[in-house]
């Protein structure tokens, strides 16, 4: 169970809608993931090329909570504009604040992310802030009042997994709002690991859409997120330096 703002989700997996090879695969992957939240982008319509596909053509979006991102924005003002465009179209249950500050790493601009989050909170949006794994920045976003912080596991689209579990653990430990690990997830083990570290959810896109079999991977991610969440609830054993036998040492018959 995941609570964000006034919404409650059974699934801890949020899915992006980018880069699927076709609409049918996307639809099947979304269904296999059992996600309740879809992410997408807001763009100028390509009016001069009618062949541009509509990612939601075959989808009943009313079945999902919609989490548009502000990708493409480089300033707080651009992010706020994007959020408002999505809101007037009734396509915005929550806004993913994404203000990129570096073309090579696609890492977020911390200053503009804070400014955009503050403005959108003032406008009454449910704000989920995509951030780096910076512990202090995550705390400052939380202090602003964002409804969830979304630290990247590693840069967008790299599939490098969790490159700084130490920072991520601190973000999770200090969190008073849900922590959704967003970006950089490569395989199910990354998703399970993030949940085991205590994350409240995972947002991923390329790991599924770019997989050899996206539909199968969507199911794998669903199971990985569930496995990691259960593991975190159960509590793992301490790591020990020396071996400790699982079988009794007494009563040997040999």
């Amino acid at each position: 169970m995941l609570n964000i703002g006034n919404m409650t989700f059974e699934s801890n997996l949020f899915l992006g809608t980018g880069k699927y090879k076709d609409a049918k695969t996307q639809l099947q992957a979304v269904e296999a993931s059992e996600t309740e939240v879809l992410t997408f982008a807001v763009r100028r319509m390509n009016l001069f090329d009618s062949s541009q596909p509509d990612p939601f053509e075959q989808m009943d979006v009313s079945k999902y909570r919609l989490l548009p991102n502000t990708a493409g924005a480089q300033t707080a003002e651009e992010a706020v504009r994007t959020a408002k465009l999505a809101e007037v179209a009734n396509m915005c249950d929550m806004i993913k604040v994404e203000v990129i500050g570096c073309d090579k790493t696609l890492l977020p601009d911390p200053v503009e992310t804070l400014r955009a989050s503050e403005q959108l909170l003032n406008e009454g949006f449910t704000v989920l802030a995509y951030t780096s794994d910076d512990v202090v920045l995550a705390r400052k976003l939380q202090e602003l009042g964002v409804h969830a912080v979304m630290p990247g596991a590693s840069p967008i689209g790299t599939g490098l997994g969790i490159i700084n579990p130490y920072n991520l653990s601190h973000i999770i430990e200090q969190a008073e709002v849900p922590v959704i690990v967003d970006a950089g997830i490569g395989s199910p083990k990354d998703a399970a690991y993030a949940m085991e570290l205590g994350a409240d959810g995972i947002l991923l896109n390329t790991a599924v859409s770019g997989a050899g079999d996206p539909v199968k991977m969507a199911e794998a991610m669903k199971l990985a997120v569930r496995a990691g969440a259960l593991g975190a609830e159960a509590g793992r054993i301490d790591k020990k330096f020396y071996a400790q036998a699982s079988s009794p040492l007494g009563g040997l018959s040999i």
Binding site: G16, G18, T39, F40, A41, V42, R43, N205, T206
Partner: peptide
């Protein structure tokens, strides 16, 4: 005039 729509993204 800007005409905006929604596209796949993560």
């Amino acid at each position: 005039i800007e005409i905006i729509h929604f596209v796949g993204g993560g």
